[in-house]
Amino acid sequence: MIIEARDLRKTFTTRGRKGSQTVEAVRGVDLTVEKGEIFGVLGPNGAGKTTTIRMLATLIVPDSGTAVVAGHDLLKEPEAVRRKLGYVSQEGGVEDTTSARAQIMMAARIHNVADPKRATADVLDRFDLAELADRPGRTLSGGQKRRVAVALGLVHAPRLLFLDEPTTGLDPQNRANLWERIRQLRESGTSVLLSTHYLDEADALCDRLVIVDHGRIVAEGTPGELKREVSGDVVTLRLEEPERAAEALRPLAREVRVDEDALRVYVDDGEHTLPALLHILEEQGIGLRSIALDRSTLDDVFLAKTGRSLRDAGAAA
Rank of each mutant, 00 (worst) to 15 (best):
residue 6 R to A: 13
residue 7 D to G: 12
residue 7 D to R: 13
residue 9 R to G: 08
residue 17 R to Q: 09
residue 17 R to G: 08
residue 18 K to C: 07
residue 24 E to S: 08
residue 26 V to K: 05
residue 27 R to M: 07
residue 27 R to A: 13
residue 31 L to H: 02
residue 32 T to D: 09
residue 35 K to I: 14
residue 35 K to C: 11
residue 35 K to N: 10
residue 36 G to M: 08
residue 37 E to G: 05
residue 38 I to A: 10
residue 39 F to K: 01
residue 44 P to M: 13
residue 47 A to K: 05
residue 47 A to S: 15
residue 48 G to V: 15
residue 48 G to H: 10
residue 49 K to H: 07
residue 49 K to F: 09
residue 54 R to H: 09
residue 55 M to C: 03
residue 59 L to Q: 07
residue 60 I to W: 12
residue 61 V to I: 15
residue 62 P to N: 11
residue 65 G to V: 10
residue 65 G to W: 07
residue 70 A to R: 02
residue 71 G to D: 03
residue 72 H to Y: 15
residue 73 D to F: 13
residue 74 L to D: 02
residue 76 K to I: 13
residue 76 K to T: 10
residue 80 A to M: 14
residue 81 V to W: 03
residue 87 Y to R: 04
residue 93 G to P: 02
residue 95 E to W: 15
residue 97 T to D: 08
residue 103 Q to Y: 07
residue 108 A to M: 09
residue 110 I to F: 12
residue 114 A to Q: 12
residue 115 D to M: 13
residue 116 P to Q: 14
residue 118 R to K: 15
residue 120 T to V: 10
residue 121 A to M: 13
residue 124 L to G: 04
residue 126 R to T: 08
residue 126 R to W: 11
residue 126 R to D: 05
residue 127 F to E: 01
residue 129 L to F: 09
residue 132 L to R: 05
residue 133 A to N: 08
residue 133 A to M: 10
residue 134 D to R: 06
residue 134 D to C: 03
residue 134 D to A: 06
residue 136 P to N: 09
residue 138 R to H: 13
residue 138 R to S: 12
residue 140 L to N: 06
residue 144 Q to W: 05
residue 145 K to H: 10
residue 149 A to P: 01
residue 151 A to D: 00
residue 153 G to P: 00
residue 155 V to P: 00
residue 157 A to P: 01
residue 161 L to G: 01
residue 161 L to H: 01
residue 161 L to Q: 01
residue 168 T to A: 12
residue 175 R to C: 05
residue 178 L to A: 03
residue 180 E to N: 07
residue 184 Q to N: 09
residue 187 E to K: 14
residue 188 S to A: 15
residue 188 S to F: 13
residue 190 T to R: 00
residue 190 T to Y: 00
residue 191 S to G: 08
residue 191 S to Y: 04
residue 191 S to K: 04
residue 194 L to M: 11
residue 199 L to F: 02
residue 199 L to D: 00
residue 203 D to G: 06
residue 206 C to N: 01
residue 207 D to C: 05
residue 209 L to G: 00
residue 212 V to I: 12
residue 217 I to M: 04
residue 219 A to L: 03
residue 222 T to D: 07
residue 229 E to L: 11
residue 231 S to K: 04
residue 233 D to A: 11
residue 234 V to E: 03
residue 236 T to P: 00
residue 239 L to N: 05
residue 240 E to D: 12
residue 243 E to F: 15
residue 246 A to L: 10
residue 249 L to C: 07
residue 256 V to N: 05
residue 256 V to H: 05
residue 257 R to I: 05
residue 260 E to V: 14
residue 261 D to E: 14
residue 262 A to S: 12
residue 267 V to P: 00
residue 267 V to R: 03
residue 268 D to Q: 11
residue 268 D to C: 08
residue 269 D to Q: 13
residue 270 G to T: 07
residue 272 H to A: 15
residue 279 H to K: 13
residue 279 H to Y: 09
residue 280 I to K: 05
residue 283 E to K: 11
residue 284 Q to P: 01
residue 287 G to R: 14
residue 288 L to S: 05
residue 290 S to D: 08
residue 294 D to N: 10
residue 296 S to D: 01
residue 296 S to G: 02
residue 299 D to N: 10
residue 301 V to E: 04
residue 302 F to G: 01
residue 302 F to D: 01
residue 302 F to P: 00
residue 311 R to P: 02
residue 311 R to T: 06
